[in-house]
Design a binder for these strands. Structure first.
Length: 1020
RNA sequence: GGGCGGUUAGCUCAGUUGGUUAGAGCACCAGCUCGACAAGCUGGGGGUCGAUGGUUCGAGUCCAUUACCGCCCACCA
């Protein structure tokens, strides 16, 4: 480089990022191959969804992975970071479908399967490119040659093999289950993809007539519902089998709660208790009568349908609620479904079409109506029939699809399931016996709790985007036909589906022709697999399983998985059980769950809330290094990261706080310059007319400032390293500050290594921040300045400075890769060979340099405490200057009264007081008396006197001394009290008591010194 | 309803096994353009550690109760 004569005062992050990322990539530093000489270290990326661009949560996730990867690479591991993206079935298809509808007014059915899938592939291509580009901008050192996608052929092969094996082992079956039906996307979604949201609704009370009531029997049964239209699918009305016992129990429970409740809640519970007592008095006879009628098999007339439905006794009907009777709609309600399972004779009627309209199971007039329309119609008709009792307003927690944001309909459908009993148990065992360690360990609990339910996993999705289920149906063949047709094939297996009376035929690879069984047509299952099915295979499928590739053998099990807590169950647990099933080994040894990034209100960031942050905005404003260091600095074990966010006005550059009100608005008027700006990325050309305001957070300033500080410290080094002569440094040549900084450096290396090994990213970042700023910059660099000008001392000073900077760069590289590389390369210009013990050529890139080992022989507690003494005195002198208002240019004269040992340490530092505090020493030792007019600071075992002659503000200094004496008096009193407390002296450990005694003595000495100075001042 | 986490300076957060006078960054105040750095330097003000009770010679730290905030799970005809 020839253009580096003038180093800019500010670090140009954009230039460094561009230059060094391509430098690393071109040299193939990120690529990994199995290498028997080295130990492997492998992380598989949690594949981002191709639904959209990455947000700040991804930036955190990937930064942490890259920090570990870079550190392990420097530690000499053969390091592979496997990158890739996830097809995210429902989410991606939903986005593309929504666009199709809004821009071309086309439904997916109008477009057709093949063309829709083509569109989604195009979308995937665009976003994958954008996502991988973002990862590169973040500095991620992934092995891009190995980039995978969950739908690519390698992953598809693993999916087929897994499905085939599970099918063969009878762990996959087809069953009828109530599913969460998304009527917009026309697919089932899992429980995990459903969220509840309160909506205003009603609670309707209806009466169903009793068929031929006997004298004394009620003529009607009253039921209540929030979803009246489902009455068309009712198959029973339930009443509790033992209402008396149920009410008694409810009363007892309530009484217990009432006894324990705080007084302000008692009134409410009293009311509830009264209500239950009233029911026991007034309603019990009728409920028991209804129960008896249920036992008799009596029927009710289901209004509007002409159907007759039975009255049944079932515990689901709670006598303490509503009328005590409940309508049963097994096909459209989870609890009613359970009632059906207990009373199979009542049957189930599905009244919905997949698109959410009513089907042929309902009377003609309601067919084809949407749920909303039919609800109005049913209510009106019941009212007309005189069967509507009342309508209450009520807020209802309505289930919504996370994907389409539309209400979920519970819906009885055929589904594919994986039996979870054995698989779940294997994944639980892996964590309980420690083969997989989850950190922080509290998350192991949620993992185990979820798995212990062993709920079968519904794996089918009624989508077009995904791995199509490799099953063919055949209705007409006999088993003999199948055996004949597939006699010579061990890659075809089949099961009987008794509910539908058909064969389910699964093939390991490829397709089955429609005429594979002569005379009996085969039809392929249309549905695709749940996205998590392929994600669950990610750690081994990306390494080539089911082939026994060298990669699989070498890198599997991977070392650590880094992810966020919301997918512990969806993803982590399933990877463990699939890894165990397919490969026979856990997929990773460690799981680290990192914090979530929240906005300034403590809410999670999401696109729909409009409070997300694009990492590229942060990168542009602060730089990738600041983004990464800032995120690492915030990654503590217990806390989520709260990040107040501002918009940066593109017109005037001022920041506007993001609020709950303005964050969802597409455009905002700047309150400083009154011009408007957009908050959205321009998706259409016409949007670009309005410039976009970047979303940033002040919380990255600390890291940006730190990077700049480092840049300038490095700049200082460059300006002082010309004519650098490499060579070992003899211990005798080392000055106090050299030995001190080397000791600190050794300790810091150890602390950072330990912190990263335990995923304490914030500790590692803080340790480096404090060392680099407060010790290296504020002290070492300041102290070495003079020596660099002195030809006799210059060489040693340069060698230690270069070595210290070199080590610091290596320690910081995993967090701030670009700046460290930029400086490393420049340092290489001046000091291509460096080191203080043995001299070695510097690595061609800091990325390839060795991770600093802790050189325990350099750790020197004596030097560190001596240095602390020097720092104390320096601070005292500066303090006096500031409080006396003495101009920085005025030279101060000071003296120190202290023990001879301390004097021996401080005397060699005299020149540093001059350069760092503009203060000249007039003597150090036990006999130093305070000058006639002085300001004074007392430290443990030392008195610092600054001779101020006529400069001094005497009244101010007297006031200060008095205040100090008052403070000391208080401390001394509390110490004396403590030490005169017999139980403290007797019970506390001896060293603690001694420490207190020493401390009291010290305080008394300080008091004496302060009095002495005060007396002198007072006589003036 | 069950579980988990949080509550420390105006804001955002540290605080290791209980042990002198509880820390940092930002913001604030005063002073500094001194040959690395104003994204800086020097000094300063600011906290009864959510509340109550307990254990202890000693509690921000351990225990119990409680309030508030957030997250996860379950349920709500």
């Amino acid at each position: 480089m020839t253009d580096d004569q003038e180093l800019p005062k500010q670090y140009d992050h954009a230039a460094a990022q561009e230059r060094w990322y391509s430098f690393w990539e071109e040299r193939g530093y990120f690529h990994s191959e199995p290498n028997p000489v080295k130990k492997p270290f492998c992380i598989v990326i949690p594949p981002p969804n191709v639904t959209g661009a990455l947000h700040l949560g991804h930036a955190l996730n990937n930064t942490l992975q890259d920090i570990l990867i870079r550190q392990k690479r420097m530690q000499g591991f053969e390091t592979l970071w496997m990158p890739g993206t996830d097809h995210a079935g429902i989410a991606t298809q939903a986005i593309v479908e929504r666009r199709l509808l809004s821009e071309e007014k086309l439904s997916r059915h109008q477009l057709g399967r093949q063309r829709l899938v083509e569109r989604i592939w195009q979308w995937k291509k665009d976003y994958e490119k954008r996502i991988l580009g973002q990862l590169k901008q973040m500095g991620c050192s992934c092995d891009w040659q190995r980039t995978r996608f969950t739908l690519d052929p390698v992953c598809a092969k693993a999916v087929r093999e897994t499905f085939f094996t599970l099918f063969k082992e009878d762990k996959i079956y087809r069953g009828k289950r109530l599913v969460n039906w998304d009527t917009f996307l026309q697919t089932a979604v899992s429980d995990d993809e459903v969220f509840h949201e309160p909506v205003k609704g009603h609670f309707w009370h209806f009466r169903y007539p009793v068929v031929s009531p006997k004298p004394g029997e009620p003529t009607h049964v009253t039921i209540a519902t929030t979803r009246p239209e489902t009455m068309l699918g009712d198959t029973a009305v339930a009443v509790h089998p033992d209402p008396a016992a149920a009410l008694a129990r409810a009363e007892a429970d309530l009484q217990e709660r009432l006894d324990a409740a705080p007084s302000k809640e008692k009134a409410d519970l009293e009311t509830q208790l009264d209500e239950i007592r009233r029911r026991r008095r007034e309603m019990l006879p009728q409920l028991e009568q209804l129960r008896d009628m249920a036992r008799d098999g009596r029927l009710l007339e289901l209004p509007l349908t002409g159907r007759r439905i039975p009255l049944v006794a079932d515990v689901w009907a709670k006598p303490e609620l509503g009328s005590g009777c409940v309508k049963i709609t097994p096909a459209h309600d989870a609890n009613d479904y359970d009632v059906w399972q207990r009373n199979l004779q009542i049957g189930a009627i599905n009244i919905l079409n997949p698109d959410g309209t009513l089907n042929e199971q309902v009377p003609q007039k309601y067919r084809g109506m949407t749920v909303k329309k039919s609800r109005e119609a049913v209510v009106a008709d019941l009212e007309a029939a005189g069967l509507l009792v009342e309508i209450e307003d009520r807020e209802i927690e309505l289930a919504h699809s996370d994907r389409s944001k539309t209400p979920i309909e519970p819906y009885l459908a055929d589904q594919w399931f994986i039996r979870m009993d054995e698989l779940a148990q294997s994944a639980m065992d892996a964590v309980t016996d420690g083969r997989v360690k989850i950190a922080p360990d509290r998350y192991a609990k949620s993992y185990l709790d979820w798995l212990s339910e062993k709920r079968d996993w519904p794996i089918g999705r009624q989508l077009w985007w995904g791995h199509q289920i490799p099953v063919w149906y055949c209705k007409t063949a006999t088993e003999a036909d199948l055996q004949r047709a597939f006699a010579d094939r061990n890659d075809v297996v089949w099961q009987r589906d008794p509910q539908r009376g058909q064969w389910l035929i699964c093939v390991r690879e490829g397709e089955l022709a429609a005429d594979a069984v002569p005379g009996h047509p085969l039809v392929r299952e249309e549905d695709v697999l749940d996205t998590w099915f392929s994600s669950a295979l990610w750690p081994h499928s990306t390494l080539g399983w089911p082939e026994q590739t060298p990669e699989l053998k070498y890198y599997y099990p991977t070392n650590v998985l880094i992810t966020s807590r919301d997918i512990i169950t969806l993803w982590v647990a399933r990877m463990v059980l699939m890894g165990l099933h397919n490969v026979g080994q856990v997929p990773f040894h460690q799981v680290f769950i990192h914090p979530k990034i929240l906005d300034g209100y403590g809410e999670g960031m999401s696109k729909s809330k409009g409070n997300g942050v694009d990492p590229l905005d942060v990168i542009e404003k602060f730089g990738t290094d600041a983004l990464r260091f800032g995120l690492a600095y915030l990654t503590t074990e217990t806390q989520d990261v709260r990040m107040p966010v501002e918009y940066e006005c593109p017109h005037c550059g001022k920041l506007i706080e993001q609020t709950r009100e303005n964050r969802t608005k597409p455009k905002i008027k700047c309150k400083h310059c009154a011009k408007e700006f957009s908050t959205q990325w321009a998706e259409k050309p016409e949007d670009k007319a309005l410039p976009r305001g970047a979303v940033v957070s002040e919380r990255f300033e600390l890291a940006r400032n730190f990077c700049n500080k480092l840049w300038n410290a490095s700049r200082f080094a460059m300006l002082n390293l010309d004519q650098f002569q490499p060579g070992p440094v003899a211990d005798d040549d080392l000055m106090v500050e050299d030995r001190w900084v080397l000791s600190r450096l050794a300790t810091v290396s150890q602390q950072v290594t330990d912190a990263l090994a335990q995923y304490r990213f914030a500790d590692a970042a803080r340790t480096l921040y404090d060392f680099a700023w407060d010790e290296f910059c504020s002290f070492y660099v300041e102290m070495v300045k003079g020596r660099l000008q002195d030809p006799a001392q210059r060489t040693t000073a340069q060698r230690v400075l270069a070595h210290t900077l070199d080590t610091l760069l290596r320690l910081l590289h995993p967090m701030i890769p670009f700046l460290t590389e930029e400086v490393w390369q420049r340092l290489g210009q001046f000091a291509p060979q460096r080191g203080i013990d043995a001299v070695e050529p510097a690595a061609e890139s800091v990325l390839r340099a060795a991770w600093p080992c802790c050189d325990a022989s350099r750790q020197d507690a004596v030097i560190e405490s001596q240095f602390a003494r020097f720092q104390d005195v320096l601070r005292a002198v500066r303090d006096i200057r500031a409080r006396q208002g003495v101009a920085p240019k005025t030279l101060l004269k000071f003296s120190i009264r202290c023990e001879p040992e301390a004097a021996d340490v401080l005397r060699p530092m005299e020149s540093y007081f001059e350069s760092m505090a503009n203060a000249k020493s007039c003597g150090v030792g036990p006999d130093m008396a305070p000058p006639p007019l002085c300001a004074h600071v007392t430290l443990s075992g030392m008195d610092v006197f600054v001779d101020l002659a006529d400069l001094i503000d005497v009244p101010a200094e007297i006031a200060r001394k008095k205040q100090e004496i008052e403070k000391l008096t208080g401390f001394i009193a509390s110490k004396e009290k403590k030490l005169s407390n017999k139980s403290f002296v007797d019970r506390a450990p001896a060293d603690v008591v001694q420490k207190e005694r020493d401390s009291l003595k010290d305080l008394q000495d300080q008091m004496a010194a302060a009095r002495e100075v005060l007396d002198r001042l007072a006589t003036k």
